[in-house]
Amino acid sequence: MNDHADARAHDRAGFTRMEDSTREDWQIIVPEAMKMAKALPDRILDHLRLLDGDFGGFPVDRLTHSRQTATLALKDGRDEEYVVCALLHDIGDTLGSFNHPDIAAAILKPFVSEENLWMVQHHGVFQGYNFFHHIGLDRHMRDQFKDHPHSHRTAEFVALYDNRAFDPSLEAEPLETFEPMLRRLMATPRNSIYKAAMQPAAQTR
């Protein structure tokens, strides 16, 4: 048995360069990719739990801040997509120390509307209005986006939810409250170059 055939016998593709891959190889890979995609909410919840107890000098830890932000949005009657965006807006804090909003936006991009994606990706500079002047930055940095159609939405998110979610006395729903919303949102991507390729595999499993 050659190396290529041996790899397939162990449920692995046999190529060493992607240009040499075959349809048979991808019949092995795509179902595995579907399993990984299906487990995305589990990995996200696991990463959120890593923020538990991580204060970083703030009045509440990062998980509590995330839960408080989402709780405020939920109690204000926001839809599930918005609430999940609120929950995940700072999930990149520990991975993207200099660009955490981009991490959250990258995770959410396949699943959310353009306006919610923009809101998450730019919330950092809008929140900066409240503290940039204390660290030597221009608090009016967000003004560069004042004519953008999603500027008001993002400023509102910060004012109503993100900015208020550093209060140790503020109640916050547990992660379990948001888990079904997260799973529903991520069950079907709306924006992905892989969407068409992955759906047939999901239907034939």
Rank of each mutant, 00 (worst) to 15 (best):
N2R: 06
D3M: 11
D3R: 08
R8A: 04
D11S: 07
R12M: 08
A13S: 09
R17N: 15
S21C: 15
T22E: 13
R23V: 14
R23Y: 06
D25C: 07
D25Y: 13
W26E: 07
Q27R: 08
P31S: 07
P31H: 06
E32C: 10
A33P: 06
A33D: 05
M34I: 15
M34S: 13
M34E: 11
M36V: 10
A37F: 10
A39N: 14
P41S: 12
P41A: 12
I44K: 02
L45D: 09
D46R: 04
D46W: 06
H47C: 08
H47D: 15
L48I: 10
L48H: 09
R49D: 08
R49K: 11
D52K: 14
P59I: 07
D61T: 03
D61W: 06
D61P: 09
D61I: 04
L63S: 05
L63Q: 04
S66I: 00
S66E: 03
T69D: 04
A70V: 06
A70L: 08
T71D: 04
L74V: 07
K75F: 14
D76N: 08
E80F: 00
E80P: 00
V83H: 03
V84S: 00
D90M: 01
D90Q: 01
D90S: 03
G92R: 03
T94N: 15
G96I: 01
G96N: 05
D102F: 00
A105S: 02
I107D: 01
K109C: 01
F111A: 01
V112R: 01
E115Q: 06
E115P: 06
E115N: 13
E115Y: 04
N116F: 01
N116W: 02
L117K: 00
L117Y: 10
L117R: 08
M119K: 02
V120I: 05
F126T: 02
F126E: 05
Q127H: 10
G128R: 04
Y129L: 14
N130G: 13
N130R: 09
F132C: 10
H133F: 12
G136C: 03
D138L: 11
D138M: 09
D138E: 10
H140I: 08
M141P: 05
R142K: 15
H148Q: 02
H148R: 03
P149A: 04
S151A: 13
H152V: 11
R153Q: 15
A155T: 12
E156P: 12
E156S: 15
V158A: 04
V158N: 06
V158W: 12
V158E: 10
V158P: 11
D162V: 10
E171L: 15
E171G: 12
E171D: 15
E176N: 11
T177L: 12
E179C: 05
M181T: 02
L182P: 00
R183N: 06
L185M: 07
T188E: 13
P189Y: 02
P189G: 07
R190L: 03
N191L: 07
N191I: 03
A196C: 13
M198P: 05
P200I: 04
Q203H: 13
Q203N: 15
T204Y: 13
R205C: 10
